[in-house]
């Protein structure tokens, strides 16, 4: 848990994404975010957890540069965000694959838009298709894949552009529980190997605790950060052992107690 030693280590680890006093008021007058400040350390996975409609997607889209903010400032690697950028990639909840393009072309699409020559981008895409466990499916089309496989393509596409920051909006919500677990395990491998910064929106407390270095609990709209929790779980043990680990179960319970007040 959030021991002093931990706190010190966060303070010293470099910050990849910094959200400073960001407010967002939608044209209709809905205030989705209010004066939100949060930092995302480099090379770590931070989950955003909070009640439905609290502004998680809004925050993610603002960081992605897909949505203008009303007041405040977002910086990525010290540079202020004014729009989408090469150093960020988005993984969409509904996958956002192009149904007319093969798995390979979909995975290589970010590179295609950047003008990377075909043979080069295909080689890179193939590498990531393999990394997400879809080797052999390169020439299929999205409608021939299951939901879990489609999201893997979405993940491969985001990884292929080699962005520093990956923004994931409930990436596993459209897949079944078994696939989801497998996916979470794979994600842990990807995080370890890639050394990228992940910002991860989820509705599942278990999922957040399982995959995250830190979890930001958000208040209901207009949203601010209520608490940052750092699950200090020994990830060297097997996935099943983690899921039975008392520390893991404790944190899940604590977060549930924290969120419960809003639900009721």
């Amino acid at each position: 848990m959030s021991t002093t030693a931990e706190a010190v280590s966060t303070a010293t680890s470099p910050i990849a994404v910094e959200v400073e006093q960001v407010s967002k008021i939608y044209p209709g007058g809905v205030e989705a975010l209010h004066d939100m400040t949060i930092q995302f350390p480099k090379g770590q996975l931070t989950s955003l957890l909070g009640p439905s409609g609290c502004g998680k997607t809004t925050l993610l889209k603002i960081i992605a540069g897909l949505l203008p903010l009303t007041t405040g400032r977002v910086t990525v690697n010290g540079v202020e965000v004014t729009g989408p950028g090469e150093e960020r990639a988005f993984v969409f909840q509904d996958f956002a694959l192009m149904p007319w393009a093969s798995v390979l072309r979909n995975a290589a699409f970010g590179l295609e838009l950047r003008g990377v020559p075909k043979s080069e981008r295909n080689a890179i895409a193939e590498k990531y298709i393999e990394a997400v466990g879809l080797k052999g499916y390169e020439n299929l089309y999205p409608h021939e894949l299951s939901g879990g496989m489609r999201q893997r393509v979405g993940l491969a596409r985001a990884l292929a552009v080699d962005a520093d920051v990956l923004l994931m909006d409930e990436p596993f919500s459209a897949v079944d529980e078994q696939t989801r677990r497998k996916f979470q395990e794979d994600l842990l491998d990807v995080i370890k190997e890639e050394g990228k910064t992940f910002i991860f929106v989820t509705h599942s407390i278990e999922e957040a605790v399982y995959v995250s270095h830190s979890i930001a609990l958000l208040l209901p709209r207009p949203s601010r950060v209520s608490e940052i929790i750092r699950p200090d779980i020994d990830r060297s043990i097997s996935p099943d052992a983690i899921r039975r680990d008392p520390v893991y179960l404790d944190i899940v319970e604590r977060i549930w107690q924290g969120l419960r007040s809003y639900v009721e």
Partner: peptide, 28 residues
């Protein structure tokens, strides 16, 4: 689908790229 438009934007597609590689096909 809105996310397809966001996808093109997030990879910094130019207007021409978005038109020829995404919009026309999505609306085919």
């Amino acid at each position: 689908t809105p996310s397809l438009i966001d996808m093109a934007k997030s990879f910094q597609a130019s207007y021409w790229q978005a038109f020829t590689k995404v919009y026309v096909w999505a609306a085919l």
